[in-house]
Computed example of a mutant assay.
Amino acid sequence: MLALLHTSPVHVPVFDALRDEVRPGLRLRHSVAEGLLDRARAEGPEAVAGEVRAVLEGAVAEGARAVLCTCSTLGAVAEAARPGVPVLRVDRPMAAAAVATGARVTVVAALRSTLRPTAGLIAEEAARAGAAVAVRTVLVPDAWEHFTAGDTARYERAVATAVDTVTDTDVVVLAQASMAPAERLVTTSVPVLSSPRPGFAAAADAAEGGGGTSRPSDGTARG
């Protein structure tokens, strides 16, 4: 069984569909903790580290063999929880793919709290690869308000428009899993990477005994 920690219920059907496509038969256990993201934004991710650890330990007690954290803001505290099984953050394979794509990486996010964790993750993967990478960040104005209001179409258009304005970069990273549908709307020739598919593939491998990996097993790119 693979356990997933989400901070929005919109991710549940997304990852169920990925399971059906990529790893049919794998049992998933979804935990949705919307309040964790609100607190992490207000007080910092470390403020909710104990609660994150409790959710992960509960999943392991119920039989999870690996855990996937789909929230980029909480990814680092989830990895640090160490509940006895592999814990993977959904954006790490994407970050590794970005480093492999080029030296100029642009992180696009709808939440300010996601920018620093994602840029830091790319720096980690660059250091691991021995690569020199320059990271810049772009915050999409008002996009998160569209998302929280349930207007996903407007949210995705706002993200795509922001991506299409990015120049002088080798690759664009969509910092949040919820941004992935915007890929189909972009017109840029620059590669655009999102996290759900490669992140899920790596976590499924870990849950089925293949061992956790931070290397992307199924990159997602446009360009």
Rank of each mutant, 00 (worst) to 15 (best):
V172P: 00
M1Y: 10
A33D: 15
A201M: 05
A98P: 08
L26H: 08
S195P: 15
P196C: 14
A98L: 05
R92V: 12
T169S: 13
S189W: 12
V171K: 10
A206H: 04
R41D: 12
H30R: 10
E51F: 06
S72C: 03
L5D: 01
A132C: 09
R184G: 15
T187I: 09
A98F: 02
H6C: 13
A61F: 12
P216R: 00
V10Y: 13
A207E: 12
M179D: 00
S113M: 09
V192H: 08
P216Y: 00
R19Q: 09
L111E: 00
H11N: 15
P86G: 05
G199A: 13
V172L: 08
T7F: 03
A203K: 01
A78G: 07
A162Y: 03
R23H: 14
P216N: 00
G130S: 07
T161H: 12
A129V: 00
P196F: 07
A109S: 12
G130A: 10
G35Q: 15
P24F: 02
S195T: 14
F200V: 13
G102I: 11
T187A: 15
V77D: 00
V55I: 08
R92D: 00
L174T: 01
V55L: 08
A153I: 02
V85R: 02
E208C: 10
A59L: 08
R23P: 10
L174Q: 05
R128K: 07
V60I: 06
A3K: 02
T213M: 00
R23A: 14
S8N: 11
V140G: 01
T73V: 05
L185F: 04
A175C: 07
V105L: 07
I122M: 08
P83V: 08
V67W: 03
G75M: 05
A3S: 11
V108G: 12
V133M: 14
S8W: 09
A109T: 04
D170F: 04
L28D: 00
A129G: 11
R89M: 09
A54K: 03
A64G: 01
C71E: 07
Q176I: 01
V22E: 14
A221T: 12
V85N: 01
G120E: 13
G150I: 09
E46G: 08
A149I: 10
A162S: 11
A182H: 02
G223W: 04
V190C: 11
R154I: 08
L37N: 02
V186K: 00
A175G: 01
P196V: 14
V138M: 11
D164H: 14
V190E: 05
D170Q: 11
E156P: 04
M179E: 06
G75D: 05
P191M: 11
A201R: 13
A80K: 05
T70A: 15
P141G: 14
D38R: 15
P196T: 15
A119E: 13
V138L: 14
V52I: 05
V52T: 07
A17S: 09
E124H: 11
L121A: 14
G58R: 05
L28S: 01
G84Y: 01
P216K: 00
A132I: 11
A158S: 12
R116I: 03
A206I: 06
R41L: 09
L139H: 06
V135L: 13
V12F: 00
V22H: 08
S31V: 13
D168E: 07
A175D: 02
A110E: 01
W144T: 00
H146Y: 07
A95R: 01
A33S: 15
G58I: 01
E156H: 05
G150M: 10
R215A: 09
L56Q: 13
G150K: 13
